[in-house]
Amino acid sequence: MSELRAPVDRKALWVVRELGLPAVIRPCVSCRADRHHATGKFRVNASGKLLDVWLLIGCDQCDRTSKIPLHERIHVQALDHRRLLAYEANDPTMIRRVVMDSGLAGRCGHRLDWAGAWTLDTDTPFYDGEPLEVFVRFELPAPIRVVKLLMAGLGLSRSAVRALPLDLPVDLDARVREDFTFLVTG
């Protein structure tokens, strides 16, 4: 953002809130549908001193349960004890963390679909043409295109957002998942 801009009297806070977990996109082995949801459970299997840990997901169409491997043939001592207890207890915080892990998605060959997983709370439902400074806070690390956030927050179409005089720290088409501030200059 520009260091020489005039102070803006109008400020707004936008908060990206969680509505649910993202969908896991990968083909179902039974019905070939591609959307899955987290079942809220892990499966931990021990064979001697070796462990296998999977996240269980269910197909949205046929409800078949599938597994996403988290640890395979790992020695019991190599896994943090608190993490193992969280897996065994089906800890909701651990489920959330694992489902939202884009690195895991890449390693396991699936994608995450964040559509319907977030909402934008804002105190500025429509843009009225006046300069406005907006603070965007993420309670959910969903990768969202900046243009989509502005469309939702300002109540404008994509073309109207693209026509606005904006002072953004990132490109309008970039995906963001961390807090940032921008300015609508008028």
Rank of each mutant, 00 (worst) to 15 (best):
R82C: 14
D34P: 10
V184Q: 00
D171P: 01
A86I: 10
H37L: 12
A89S: 14
L164P: 00
A163G: 12
T119H: 05
A12Y: 02
R32S: 11
L56M: 05
L13H: 08
P165Q: 13
E18N: 12
G48C: 06
L19S: 05
D167Y: 03
E133G: 03
R17N: 05
V98N: 04
R107M: 13
P169L: 12
S47Q: 08
W54H: 13
A160E: 11
A152R: 09
H37A: 05
P22C: 10
L56F: 06
G155N: 12
D113R: 09
V170T: 12
A115T: 07
V24M: 10
F126G: 06
A142Y: 06
P131Q: 08
H37Q: 11
L168N: 02
P69A: 10
R32L: 06
M94K: 13
V146M: 01
E178I: 15
W114H: 04
R111A: 15
S2C: 07
R43M: 11
S159Y: 07
D167G: 09
C28R: 15
G155A: 12
R177W: 14
Q77N: 11
R43E: 11
L70T: 01
P125Q: 03
L70W: 00
L84R: 00
R32Q: 07
E3K: 14
L140D: 00
V24C: 14
D80N: 05
R82D: 10
R162M: 09
F182Y: 00
I68E: 02
Y127C: 02
R73C: 14
E130L: 10
L4M: 12
W14V: 01
R35K: 12
V146L: 01
H37S: 14
P125R: 00
E130S: 09
E133V: 12
V134D: 03
V99H: 02
R96G: 15
D179Q: 07
G129N: 15
G116S: 07
F135P: 06
L156T: 08
R97C: 06
V53C: 05
L104N: 05
A12G: 02
G153R: 01
L19V: 07
S157E: 07
F180N: 03
A160G: 07
V15G: 10
R83I: 13
P141V: 03
I25A: 12
S47P: 13
G20M: 15
L50C: 03
T93L: 15
H81A: 04
V99D: 04
L164C: 10
L140C: 07
L154V: 04
G109V: 06
L149E: 02
P169F: 04
L166G: 00
D63Q: 08
A163E: 11
R97H: 14
L56G: 01
C31H: 03
K49P: 02
V146C: 02
L183N: 01
D63S: 11
A160P: 07
F180P: 01
V16M: 03
C31W: 10
T65Q: 10
Y127D: 03
I144H: 03
